[in-house]
Design a protein around this nucleic acid. Sequence first.
DNA 1: ATTTTATTGCAACTATATTGCAATAATACA
DNA 2: TGTATTATTGCAATATAGTTGCAATAAAAT
Lengths: 126, 126
Amino acid sequence: MKKTRNTQKQDFVLDILAKSEHTMSADAILEAMPIKINKTTVYRILDRFAEKGKVHYVTGENGKAYYALCSDCDVEHDFHNHIHFQCKNCEKVTCLSYEIKVPELKNFEIQETQFLMIGVCDKCKA
Amino acid sequence: MKKTRNTQKQDFVLDILAKSEHTMSADAILEAMPIKINKTTVYRILDRFAEKGKVHYVTGENGKAYYALCSDCDVEHDFHNHIHFQCKNCEKVTCLSYEIKVPELKNFEIQETQFLMIGVCDKCKA
DNA sequence: ATTTTATTGCAACTATATTGCAATAATACA
DNA sequence: TGTATTATTGCAATATAGTTGCAATAAAAT
């Protein structure tokens, strides 16, 4: 694996994700940054983290990628097989602790999973 | 529900999807069209079909929407809760007959589901 | 202190999808 | 059948998410 370097901007990205109760899109992270940073940099930091298994992402119904720190993820197999929920109204994507059992598939070699449930969250229903 | 009209272009979209063994992106459908059609029209036809439950779509890992005819889908609840598989190499998305049991969730009202598994298909492995 | 090269910024660009508005055409109905 | 209504379509412009090439910067190895 390629060598990596520690930078303040990478640390901030981790911090922001750690403090967030929801997954975050690249532009949300960009906005939450306390220092000036380029969006390309955010994307590349997230890419590197995803490759190292520090972070996983789900593609929302809207086609946007949402990132979260990996905690219980099976990094070895890149299986982030818990459920994610996206609210149609506020568009927030949440990691849920509910796990889906990944099936064995003929004809396909599974490397990653993305389980997304879509609807309305309680906050938006009220 | 709003009134609808029958048009040749709509029929062609259904035809193309019916004959495809994989889900199709809007631009793939556009290319498969035997007659001239505008991409905006394709998007709008697919939107209408999705609303009527004739078609469902999954958002691929790449953020693209992939459409397929609804056959066993629970149209009433908009639950297209079978698994989809996307190959990282050829990017094709396939509907699989494997069903995921949708859990009950506190705090969230589920309206749709998107279960995506990502990896390599047999054709691309060979 | 110097070198190496990972990281970052910037500008330009790609791809997917959407919007407003005018033109067209399917259907209802006189 | 002819006319009116309005769903559908086309076009151009725009929005949004993400990527690429290249030069500048800076972490860390020496």
